[in-house]
């Protein structure tokens, strides 16, 4: 299995192998310097492969775990139109998970293994999904803020140097953009609704704002991997840069919503030409990442349950396929 190569770089290379490695590295360096694309069969440094595999699989896991807080409201959606939109959205997320697992598989790791790692608690996913979706307005706030932040993060990834990842991101971003509009529309409707609905919308924005800002990752001076990712043309902008752009967009859009952001310190810095925001609780971020969020155990258990309950179905499908192949061979 190719994934084992990650750990087993030979210590001693023969002269031919050394030459191949050097030629590979030269090709890789040229592709990166030309801002062109690396494809699955191309030579790539093991660290590049590892970084991508980690990032893409985490992204896939986030899509899959991220289905849960929203699926939680499918059966209770307050109108049939909203129910249809929400179903379609959660279904899109399963689709995103599928593209991303496929992109990650081109790096030599099977989807089964990635799923195993997720269920065993060995893999990470976006920690924001460890917060509960407690009201219908959360469907709006998740769409507007969480998908909004995801878009800011992901649009630059459409140009990521690894071909399968960049291409998967193009389609994902289009759908995410749609999701963000849907979230915005939910909040707009609530904000223009009854006082109770407006209160529900404001409460959801208050709860999701800070976690959404933290989705961009730790501040630049505390983000050790960012620099290398940028040198490899995987990442294009720093965490703080993206966060600042996001704040700038939200500050305008929240006015249209007739709601407020729970942050007194938002301002545009004329000197740096950047948007600034109030302090974020990075200790909470680290706690949630470390498994102490309100829903960490619940989210993983739900995934594990779906996986375990479905084992007999997957076995049946595999066995049926085997028997069919056998029949065809005999015929």
């Amino acid at each position: 299995m190719a994934s084992q190569n990650l750990q087993s770089v030979p210590a001693e290379l023969s002269p031919e192998e050394l030459e191949r490695e050097q030629a590979g590295q030269a090709y890789f360096d040229r592709i990166i310097s030309e801002d062109s694309r690396i494809e699955p069969r191309d030579w790539m440094p093991e660290a590049y492969r590892k970084t991508l595999l980690r990032q893409i699989s985490q992204h896939a896991h986030s899509e899959i775990i991220g289905m849960q807080p929203e699926a939680n409201w499918i059966t209770r959606a307050p109108s049939l139109k909203r129910k249809a939109i929400l179903m379609a959205k959660v279904q899109d997320e399963a689709g995103h998970g599928l593209y991303l697992y496929s992109a990650a598989e081109t790096l030599g790791q099977s989807r089964d293994k990635m799923m195993e790692d997720l269920i065993a608690g060995k893999a990470r996913y976006s920690s924001i999904f460890n917060y509960p979706a407690v009201s219908w307005a959360d469907m709006g706030a998740i769409g507007w803020l969480v998908d909004g932040a995801a878009i800011c993060n992901q649009v630059p990834l459409c140009r990521a140097s690894y071909g399968p990842y960049g291409r998967a991101m193009v389609r994902i971003c289009k759908e995410e953009s749609f999701h963000q509009r849907q979230g915005f529309e939910i909040l707009l409707e609530l904000s223009n609704g009854t006082p109770a609905q407006k209160q529900m919308a404001q409460d959801a924005v208050n709860r999701w704002y800070a976690p959404a800002l933290m989705m961009f990752g730790p501040p630049d001076d505390d983000s050790p991997n960012s620099k290398q990712s940028m040198a490899w043309n995987i990442k294009r902008f720093s965490n703080d840069e993206l966060r600042s752009r996001f704040v700038g967009m939200m500050v305008e859009q929240v006015k249209v919503l007739g709601l407020t952001l729970p942050d007194q310190d938002i301002r545009f810095n004329e000197e740096t030409k950047k948007w600034e925001h109030g302090p974020l609780d990075w200790n909470e971020f680290k706690d949630v990442l470390a498994g102490k969020g309100p829903c960490n155990a619940q989210r993983l258990e739900r995934r594990r349950e779906a996986h375990d309950d479905g084992a007999w179905v997957r076995e049946a499908a595999a066995e049926y396929a085997r028997k069919q192949a056998e029949k065809e061979f005999a015929a």
Binding site: I74, M87, Q91, A94, L98, R302, V313
Partner: peptide, 19 residues
Amino acid sequence: LGHWISRAPELEEDVALGN
């Protein structure tokens, strides 16, 4: 059927039952 979305035996079935 909506209840199956995020609980299906395979991601492909999350998509199919959702559809």
